[in-house]
Computed example of a mutant assay.
Amino acid sequence: MVRSLSRRGLLAGTAAAIAAPALAQSFPNRPITMVVPFAAGGSTDVVARIIAQKMSEGLGQQVVVENVAGAGGNVGAARVAKGEPDGYQILMGTVATHALNPLMLKRKPYDPATDFAPISLLAIVPNVLIVNPSLPAKTVPELIGLLKANPGKYNYASSGLGTPLHLSGELFKSLAKVEMQHIAYRGSGPALNDVVAGVVPIQFDNLPSASAFIQAGTLRALGVTTKERAASFPDVPTIAEALPGYETYTWNALFAPKGTPKEIVDRLNAEAVKAVKDPAVGERMKVFSAAVVGSTPEALAEHVRAEIAKWTPVVKEAGVSID
């Protein structure tokens, strides 16, 4: 009996070992859906369409982008988390879906660290600290000095409550030990218009959407939020140059549902990395100041853990929670 069971187990293990590579070799044999958990037209959607087009060439099957917007990205992310782990539905995730939203939501539709199979960190998009030119602060140290001399006097704008840009401001307040009142707008556009008009003097925004205002001189860029200066604005210092330890950014990464076979994840990773390393893709990404990465699945998993650890105290201190 023991011998029979052992032999049956050995045969089952052998069959599984043979089936896994065969599954990977036949993948994909139909189109793949890349879920973008936001509306069409935003930076995440643009990145997804650039990557999907290039991955389609390598995979020999079309990678179709589907926008599944709602609840700040949670609707689309939850759909992929609950999907079949076969590689045919993948998610273009962000700092919102895999760090901020899960920390702020009272009811959590998924666990960002355990409900997904990481594929690759694709790109990092800097945020930027901008001010109305009439504000008497031309550098980050001058702004910190101004805020400390006038606690609570100045407001800052962002594209909405609980967004990465709102929390970029909260992290700044925490590290600089200054006071500013947050003004939440319904999108970056209205916030930018009010900062240009001087209604609110300070804003944290994505660098791509603020670029035209900076170039026109209608807004002054004090610092980018990444560790390195942005190639598109090399003369703009990083905030970290004046405030060590400060770093925020918007990022895009691919995820599959938990349980997706390693061979399929590896195939998707190989094609995703090949896509972001393509020179033509790199040039298109530069248009909106995105720095391409192309990581391993393991590096993306560590990135998600680090982002959750970084943002947990910031969200707690800011007291942000969403029903």
Rank of each mutant, 00 (worst) to 15 (best):
M285D: 03
H303D: 08
A242I: 05
V75D: 09
V178T: 07
V68N: 04
A256D: 05
W311T: 02
K274W: 09
V125W: 03
P164M: 15
I18N: 10
A52H: 00
G294I: 08
A78V: 00
L207A: 08
L91T: 04
P136M: 10
P21I: 13
G245L: 04
K258M: 11
A19Q: 10
A77L: 12
M285S: 05
P141N: 10
G223C: 08
R8L: 15
L219I: 14
G319S: 15
W251Y: 09
H166L: 03
P112W: 07
R186A: 15
E84M: 12
A176Y: 08
Q25Y: 11
G259T: 04
E283A: 13
L23T: 07
V314I: 13
S211A: 08
S56V: 03
A290D: 02
D194A: 11
K138Y: 08
A212M: 05
L161N: 05
L207D: 01
V196E: 14
V281I: 14
K316V: 09
I51Q: 01
V80F: 04
L175A: 14
A20D: 12
A24W: 12
K108C: 08
P112S: 11
S159R: 10
T248P: 00
G76F: 06
N155L: 13
F27P: 00
L222S: 02
V314Q: 04
S188M: 11
N206I: 07
A157H: 10
F288K: 05
V2R: 14
Q89V: 07
K138H: 07
T296G: 01
G294E: 05
M55H: 02
T238G: 00
P190I: 15
G282E: 02
F172K: 14
A17E: 15
A16R: 11
D323Q: 14
V287K: 15
I308C: 06
L100M: 07
G187Q: 12
A22G: 06
K106E: 15
K138I: 09
Q203E: 13
A291M: 05
R220Q: 13
M92A: 14
P244N: 08
T218N: 07
V140W: 08
L122V: 14
N29T: 12
P164D: 11
Q53D: 10
R3Q: 15
Q181D: 12
A81Q: 07
G169P: 00
G42I: 10
